[in-house]
Every structure is written in C-alpha cells, then in structure tokens.
Design a binder for these strands. Structure first.
Lengths: 229, 229
DNA sequence: TGATCTGTCTTACGATGTAAGGGAACCATA
DNA sequence: TATGGTTCCCTTACATCGTAAGACAGATCA
C-alpha cells in the first residue's frame, strides 16, 4: 500500500538515474519521455518540471557518465600520485573505459551532444595538469589532448560499431558473398584469415577489445614521450 | 512548362543525390522523408519505391560518402604509386578528410550506422594492401587499422563538436562564468591562454583544424614505422 | 482487348516531443 | 484560521515524423 499512496518525489537526480538504468537495460533507443515516465510511475509531462526537455535529459545523461569517470579517476589519482605522467594517464583512460563498458550507449551519446558536458572540463583539466607536470609545454599538451581524442574518455571511435544495433559483421558477410569478397578484397580477407581474431570481448563495437585499445593508447603515449624528449 | 508536365523519373541515385544536397545545405536534421520528397517534387511515399525506408536512405548516404572517398583515393593512388607506405596512407587520409569537410554531417552519420557501409571494405582493403606492401605483418596491419580509427576516414572524433549544432565553446564559456572557470580549471585555462588558438578553420568540430589532424596522423604513422622497424 | 507491371499518390495510423493550462497539496503570513 | 502563493504532477491537445495499405494512371505485353 505504501508504494501506492506514498511516492518518493521526483527530482533531476532520480530522473537521470532512471534514464541511465533504462538506457543500460534496453538501449538508448528505448529512452523516450513516456517510457522513462512510466518507469518512474509518473506521467511524461511531469519530467519537464525537473528537466528542460529531451535534449536536456540527454545532456544530463552525458554529464552523469562523465561524472562517473571523474569519480573513478579521483579514486585512482589519489592512489598513484607518485607515478609518471604516462602511467597516470594510462590508468585514467583505462578507468574511463570501464565506465564506458558499463554504458555502451555513452560513446554514441557523447558524440551527438551539441554542447560539451560540463564535467568534461574538469576531466580535461586533470589531463592537462598531468601533462604539464610531466614536462609538456602547453602547446604539446594541447596537441596531445586532440591526439587522444575519444581515447581520453575511454572509447575508440570504431567507425562501424554493430554492437550499437543489430547486424554483426559475421552475419552480413560470412554468407554466400564470402567467396566474392575474398576476390574483391584479397588483402582484407588475408588479414582476417591470418588473424582469425577471437573476439572474446566484443563489448564496445567490432574488435574494440582491450588489446586494441591499449595498443593504440601506448602508441600515442610512446609517440608523445618521444616528442617531449 | 516542361518542368511541370515532364519530370525526370525518380531513381535511387537521384534520391541519394538530393539527400546529400539537402544534408549539405541544411544539415542532416532537415533530412526528413517529406522534406526530401518535396525537394524532388514528389510525395513522401514515392521514395519508398526506390529505397527501403529512412534507415536505408541513411545507409545509402553513408555509402555515397564512402564512395566519394574511394573515388578521390583512386585518383591519388594511381599518381603516387612510387611513394612509401607512409606517404601513401597520409595522402589517402587527407583526401578522405577533404570529402568529410564537404559533408560535415558525414562523421556523425557514419558513427550511427548499424552495418558497415559496403564501400568501406574496399577502402580498408586498400589500406591493408599499402601496409602489407610496406612490410607490415598482418597482425600489425590489423592493429594499425584500429589505431587509425576514424582518421582513416578523414575525421578526428572530437568528442564535442559544437559545429554539428548550435553553441560554440566561446558562447557558453566566455561569459560571466569565465572567472569561476579559471579558478576551477587552472591548467585548462592556462593552456587556452598560452595557446590562444586562432581557430581559423573550425569546419569540423572544435579545434579540429588541419594542424591537429595532421599532428595526430603523423604521431601514429611515426609510431607504426618504429614498431615495423 | 485485357492483364500485368511500374511508379506515384492518397489516406491514415502510431510514436514521439512538448506547449498550455488545470488542480491538488503545502506553506508562509495576516 | 483564512488566504494567497509556490511546488509539483497531471490532462489534453497538437505538430511532426516514419511508414503500412492500397488506389490509380500509364506503359508494356499477351
């Protein structure tokens, strides 16, 4: 009876938390105002009292995710403050990646936000601080920020990420047209054959395994270390 | 009168061309079935005879863009076949970038496609061919492909790209809260001050200037060259 | 001629975001 | 205690979107 008569009042935080939960469970596509309201035991228009609209909701979602990253990074930074810039950034980015793995919809969402999620500023400030304390010039730090790109936030921009929707590469390719492709794309097929990549962790897009992520990350870190000289 | 009585018949190609034109002119947001039909002097449902639906239209758009890249790359590859892998990939990616600059909506579109645009396979096959002929192992070529990420298709995944919608960084930041930010984000603000980046080419997202793009690209190419060793 | 095929249009439906305003509960003040 | 404002949620209604179903006109072919 209590849950019928009394109801925890809505709030921006409660709405955002429910939105995250819904997106995690059923994908960002399922996140509609009406559905979100239903999950909260409320009518759709009630959400507008706590949020400025759908776009504002998505902005809030993005902020929430970045907030998770900031929180995770905060826990790490205090622990390994004695390490060098390279190790600290590495930990940072890997921590961010874990957050992204918990929210597979987040990379796509961040990519579509018109304005920068507020928390990103704080996050990037920390990166710059680490770089500067590691002997980087501001110029090189700036370049490095750009070079990291989405890696800094824990995801590699795989241009094609079948994970975000239906249709894996195998489904579409490994059928009748396989032979034709081997002819038209000899090098790609040879590579695929040579690799026979055991995609054991297809959590974030095609082949975006931990190995690939860390390889690219180290490639960048090594290159920057060399330039820093 | 001719344009009233006689009308060039619709076709998949004509629809896609009109879609590209519309997206270029007014952004991908304006690309609705009804609007596209209007531009073609036709009713919305007529499009469905030539395309399987909105999603299919977007897939076609993605394919069209990749096709443009393939065409541009083809022109280049024949010319500079004597260069080394590094120079050839560089030209390739820069050519792809020019295509993306012509279609600012393309990066976002490619990121949301469920299945891989068909032309991408051919494009990537060419990259792998270049790498292999440059002495790369299949394994390293695979890693390299992942490391390039969206750079291979000509755009850097700037997590925040205010260019795709309203609201530039300056508008949101350089107001009353500027002072507060300088306090909260000392390193970022110091960097911004030290750089005072003259963003003369804000065509593709914030700070995604040619310089940043090429810096990141060379960072990766240098790193791969060293590993290839 | 009549049947089939092609390409376009008409109509209609469900989903979505949201503007406009109603109303109940609470709360401070007179 | 009465009253007027504030807070919070709801009802209703609308515009816009993608698109299912099928009508209709002209071309093609039997």
């Amino acid at each position: 009876m209590d849950e019928k008569t009394f109801r925890e009042p809505l709030s921006r935080e409660r709405v955002l938390a429910a939105a995250v939960a819904l997106a995690d469970a059923e994908g960002i596509k399922a996140l509609t105002m009406r559905r979100l309201a239903t999950d909260l035991g409320v009518e759709a228009m009630s959400l507008y009292y706590h949020l400025p609209g759908k776009e504002g909701l998505l902005d809030g979602l993005a902020d929430t995710v970045v907030g998770e990253i900031d929180a995770a990074v905060g826990r790490i930074e205090t622990a390994g403050a004695d390490q060098d810039w390279r190790a600290r950034l590495r930990q940072r980015f890997l921590a961010a990646r874990e957050v992204m793995l918990r929210h597979p919809w987040a990379p796509g969402l961040l990519g579509t936000r018109a304005s920068i999620p507020a928390g990103v500023y704080a996050y990037y400030d920390g990166i710059v601080a680490t770089l500067i304390s590691g002997g980087f010039s501001y110029r090189l730090a700036h370049r490095a920020l750009h070079a990291f790109g989405s890696l800094a936030l824990g995801f590699a921009q795989e241009v094609f990420s079948p994970a975000s929707a239906g249709g894996s590469m195998d489904d579409e390719v490994a059928e009748a047209e396989f032979a034709a492709m081997a002819e038209a794309l000899p090098h790609l097929m040879a590579m695929a054959a040579a690799e026979t990549h055991d995609v054991a962790d297809p959590t974030l897009g095609w082949c975006d395994s931990q190995v690939e992520f860390e390889f690219t990350l180290d490639l960048l870190l090594d290159g920057l270390e060399r330039i820093r000289g």
